[in-house]
């Protein structure tokens, strides 16, 4: 049985797809057979972030409709072993992602894979509901920004009430926070919510903190998940998050700002 994990946030543009690509690649690098699924019907983008956009033949909806089987639709990643991508459909029909269909695909994937990562679209419409409904656990991606934090709280409420686990009366879906675009310097200046502030408000466990980093744009520009940029701060922070996800204890890095010396400040260095 696979662990089904939804990467969600409510708000758009906070790094769900970047995170899905990074976590899925990290898990595969650690030797776990992993599938990453794009639930953003109509606005497919995971393929672009994973660098396999030219190899898409069949998509999620094709599999649901029986036009293709999973084996045909799953794209095997060229860089990382154990990693497969299921692209979203470009259809404008939002109803194409049926609950039965999604359940069938997830059940079939569960037999073969250790991890199934569901990249949720923004918002709380059908795609987002389907991405989270069958999940065993959630990673909530949040920027240290008011609208993102508020939407994450809303999404936590939805995860707690509108999932298969909740409807079956099972224990609440475990959800952990992944903070992205964090700038310790701005936090120290009092211009940005700190990790502690956001945790105070959302009251969930922290999986990782990804610093604001140029490496993220560089990675998406070239279609290479940022964890493969091993020298980068963001890549290392994501690998730490993956290790924690797998049960390892690791201290959080890139969360404090090194103050310049008095003389550095004096001479405007």
């Amino acid at each position: 049985m696979a662990r089904i994990v939804v990467i969600t946030s409510g708000k758009g543009g906070v790094g769900k797809t970047t995170t899905s690509a990074a976590i899925a690649t990290g898990l595969a690098l650690a030797g776990h057979k992993t599938a990453v699924l794009d639930f953003d019907v109509g606005l497919r983008n995971l393929d672009l972030i994973m660098g396999c956009e030219r190899r898409v033949v069949y998509d999620f909806v094709n599999v649901i409709n029986g036009d293709a089987n999973l084996r045909q639709a799953l794209i095997k990643d060229k860089r990382t072993d154990n990693l497969f991508i299921l692209p979203a459909s470009q259809t404008r029909d939002k109803e194409a992602l049926t609950q039965d269909g999604v359940e069938r695909v997830l059940n079939e994937l569960s037999q073969d894979f250790e991890f199934v990562i569901c990249d949720s679209p923004a918002g709380i419409e059908r795609g987002a509901m389907m991405a989270s409904y069958f999940a065993d656990e959630a990673i909530v991606v949040t920027n240290p920004e008011v609208s993102s934090v508020r939407d994450s709280d809303r999404m936590l409420g939805i995860l707690a009430s509108k999932s298969r686990r909740a409807e079956r009366g099972e224990s609440a879906m475990p959800a952990r926070l992944l903070m992205t675009r964090y700038s310790p310097e701005r936090v120290q200046k009092g211009e940005m919510l700190s990790i502690e502030d956001v945790q105070d408000i959302l009251s969930i466990d922290l999986l990782g903190v990804i610093p604001e980093s140029q490496a993220v744009l560089n990675a998406s520009n070239s279609g290479v998940p940022v964890v493969l940029d091993e020298a980068s701060d963001a890549g290392q922070a994501y690998m730490d998050a993956v290790a924690r996800f797998l049960g390892e204890e690791r201290p959080h890095r890139f969360t404090t700002f090194e103050k310049k010396s008095f003389f550095g400040r004096l001479f405007g260095g």
Binding site: V146, V187, L193, D197, I201
Partner: peptide, 17 residues
């Protein structure tokens, strides 16, 4: 400090919601 303003506003609205 705008961060403390942000935190206060969030705490109120999130509690209400």
């Amino acid at each position: 400090k705008s961060a403390s303003v942000a935190k206060e506003r969030l705490q109120i609205i999130v509690a209400r919601e």
